[in-house]
Design a protein around this nucleic acid. Sequence first.
DNA 1: TTGTATGCGTTATCAC
DNA 2: GTGATAACGCATACAA
Lengths: 386, 386
Amino acid sequence: MATKPKRNSSTSRGDAAKRNGRAQAAATVRPSVANQGRVPGHIPTMQDIADAAGVSQSTVSRVLTGAPNAIPINPATRERILEVARQMRYRPNPLARGLRGARTMLLGVIVREITDPFFAGAVDAISTEANRHGYNVVLGHVHSRTDEAIALRAVLETRHCDAILLLGDTSDQPRLLEELRDANFPVVALWQGMSSMPGISVIDVDNRSGVDALMDHLLGLGHRKIGFIGGAFVEGRLIGDIGERRVAFLERASAEGLELPEGFMCDAPNTFAGGSGAFTALMALPERPTAVIATTDVLAIGTLHAACHLGLNVPSDVSIVGFDDLPVAQYTTPSLTTVCMPIAEMAAAGVRAAIDEDHDRDSVTLQILKPEIVIRDSSGPAPRDA
Amino acid sequence: MATKPKRNSSTSRGDAAKRNGRAQAAATVRPSVANQGRVPGHIPTMQDIADAAGVSQSTVSRVLTGAPNAIPINPATRERILEVARQMRYRPNPLARGLRGARTMLLGVIVREITDPFFAGAVDAISTEANRHGYNVVLGHVHSRTDEAIALRAVLETRHCDAILLLGDTSDQPRLLEELRDANFPVVALWQGMSSMPGISVIDVDNRSGVDALMDHLLGLGHRKIGFIGGAFVEGRLIGDIGERRVAFLERASAEGLELPEGFMCDAPNTFAGGSGAFTALMALPERPTAVIATTDVLAIGTLHAACHLGLNVPSDVSIVGFDDLPVAQYTTPSLTTVCMPIAEMAAAGVRAAIDEDHDRDSVTLQILKPEIVIRDSSGPAPRDA
DNA sequence: TTGTATGCGTTATCAC
DNA sequence: GTGATAACGCATACAA
């Protein structure tokens, strides 16, 4: 690189302005070095700092990287560089950092439906937790029903993340998971339900424990006819946590010797409308349940709405319970008995697993956290005459 | 660069494996060129493709960049390269792309509260729209009450975005806006309310029109005593769209000659609890309003809950209307009369403005879209005896 | 039509 | 203590 001219302060800033500036005024004033040379619209680089401070770029890097003990720097030089950097409002370029092999301080979060209030809350918690560790969050959006290719692209293009967090069940996107599995960064699955994957850390809630708590509660209130509104089958399989909850319910019901007449197990897409429709179907049965477990609060809210439309009083005619404890669950009419997710804890665990320094493909974690039942007004004693 | 050795296929892949692999098995098989040399755990670069295809890296770049008309490429060569790239599962490195000066295909979205269902929907819409244009979304999370520094960092570290979208009012973060203003990428503000900023494109909804529609509706039902639940004052000022709605209400009320007894204008934080509390206060007034406008559906939901608790029937005792038309608004008890936001249109406009090719600081856009009232069950005729 | 060389802003490894 | 200098993966002006 013999031809590369040694940069002095004025040429370097000139260069920089030319590179960076668009539609820069031709008569740009070239400030003196003492002026700290802040050209508006130009993002200063380490080289700019170096020029202004009269040192080499690598020295600037050493100071700004903040490895204080690694290599000794003349305190005077350090101070000068820091001062100049501050005045020029220097910000490190994360791209260059990442390209060089360092971390990007970005966490990729793949979520199916950000409009699902539960996942919105989860993203919030993860984002907060990530920020606490100095990370930002890249949202990889994956619509349930869109072509898998989109999901793939979202992930692969997100390769510049230090880690990827999967929210909810993604087992219906096998190619995505496959690509992810032999990625060379940590992959953490949260609320992913039953389908475990090799090479992927899993953090989930103990769905069985949640369902059991709900069942204890309802059984204690005298209910023996309990309907269940689960998630929809996707390609013949129930997915994610919802599937787990369904299995847990079936097993518990059978253990208790509960009758489950035809139609008591109701499938519905995880939407308000889904819950509403399923409940209506449930109430059209010859033998009506006295209590209904909705696998998510979203379904439960739809259920409450349908009950109101049918002129049924909750909980005196029928008890309705949900799962998730969304913020709104406290403000439905009536307020919802549900299962509170340890969202913050799970987010914390997820972020921790994601940014784990010495990531080892063989040491993936598996953490199952316990949820807790929250009893409100939508559940009550089983009606006598039922 | 006389010392740089010309890379041949085998050395280059050897290098790459060493750089990239962690804990790579020492006895790594070095596959022949014909084998397409896919080393597991190694992300192939253009150089790898080039080596495998027997061409130079720049040729690979030209083919893969997909500028078909710019520079003619031998169809045979092109095919070969594409084939090799496919086999090696090549993915462009967005960091390198971005560093090189090209676009990162990343859109930064700064949102105050992702848990606010309205903004969750907005993020969803923006993300969807962004995907349609080949962009991904980086979520810059800004908690309302957190230190401004966090917001700043989130943004500045997000400098590797091609553009930034601001969701909701951010005028209480002046330093953030200032930094953003002389950024050299497009900044678009959505639902930012009254406070306009130079150099920032603004896309908002016509709040006045929405409030007027609500007022027309309520006045048509015979209501003359209308209460208003607005957002909270932040540092002495009402913020964002909520502020605009409040002003619009006041002006319309005065134009109609409506009385506004003390306490009819109610401030509350934009939460379920806020709406609930405000409504309770409203109903404790010596003279009760017969209808209440909540500035957001979130507030309205809290309001409905409070009404139920007070034993009031909606809408026969009191009408309640909201603003936003959240998905859940259809499933409240009773379902909510509200104003439907043109979220998809606004997201589309926002993304368009953000990725506008020839971005010019002087040509910022200002678009105001019209909302539409949705009449449901929470509003009815004013009670006779009121 | 293809190859060479260079730069983007960092970090890290050498020398001095 | 500090300064050259080589990557990192890609795009592109310039040569050939």
